[in-house]
Amino acid sequence: MFKDLDPVLHSQVRLAIMSVLISVESAEFAFLLESTKATKGNLSFQLTKLKAAGYVDITKTNKGNYPLTICKITSVGIKAYTKYVDAIEDYFKVFRQQ
């Protein structure tokens, strides 16, 4: 009856990251930090999980003398996010029918 939920996306911070990245071409680490209200360590950890799943690409460069981390959602990430949102919507549909 219910579709399985992707365990990679079934995390508040990872879902928040993906929700931001789905709506932008790319995002700097600082922007994600502000948007998700996560700590630096937690955001870094969760981005590593998303990268390992192939859901995001992470590019590390420098901006002047400062490190710059840029994140971008991949096509695999877009598909996974869309599938996850569709599955959640199915949960709500079942609830509303009762």
Rank of each mutant, 00 (worst) to 15 (best):
K40H: 12
L15D: 07
F92C: 00
M1P: 08
I17E: 12
E34C: 00
D4Y: 06
I73K: 06
T48R: 14
V20D: 04
K49L: 00
L9W: 03
A87Q: 03
I73F: 06
A80S: 04
V76W: 10
T36H: 00
T36V: 01
V24T: 12
F95G: 09
S44L: 14
A30Y: 12
V13R: 07
I73L: 08
N62H: 14
V8G: 07
V13N: 06
L21K: 09
S35N: 11
M18L: 10
L9D: 04
K83G: 05
I88P: 01
E89Y: 07
Y66M: 07
F29N: 11
D90E: 15
S35V: 07
T74H: 04
Y91L: 10
I70K: 02
S75L: 14
A30W: 11
G77A: 10
K72Y: 05
S44D: 12
L43A: 00
L50N: 01
S26Y: 13
A80V: 01
T36D: 01
L9K: 02
A30S: 15
Q12R: 14
S44C: 11
T48E: 14
E89S: 09
K49V: 00
Q46C: 05
K49Q: 04
N42Q: 12
L47K: 07
N42G: 03
F29K: 11
A80N: 00
T69Q: 09
L21V: 04
K3V: 04
A52N: 14
S26C: 11
A80C: 00
D57F: 05
N62S: 15
Q12W: 09
T39V: 09
D90I: 02
Y91A: 06
A53Y: 07
K51I: 05
I22T: 02
V56G: 02
K63W: 09
Y81L: 14
N42P: 02
K79V: 06
I78Y: 03
F29E: 12
I17V: 15
I78R: 04
T48H: 09
K40P: 15
Q97F: 03
F95M: 12
G41M: 08
L68G: 08
F95K: 13
E25D: 10
I22W: 01
Q12K: 15
K51W: 07
D4C: 03
A80Y: 00
Q12D: 10
I58A: 11
V13L: 12
F31Q: 13
L32V: 10
T48G: 13
K72D: 03
D90L: 09
F95T: 08
D6W: 03
V56S: 03
A87G: 05
L43S: 01
D57G: 03
K83R: 14
L50Q: 03
T69V: 15
I78F: 01
I22P: 00
G64Y: 04
K60I: 15
A30K: 14
T82L: 02
E89P: 00
K83P: 01
D4I: 10
K60E: 15
E28F: 02
R96P: 01
A52C: 08
K63Y: 11
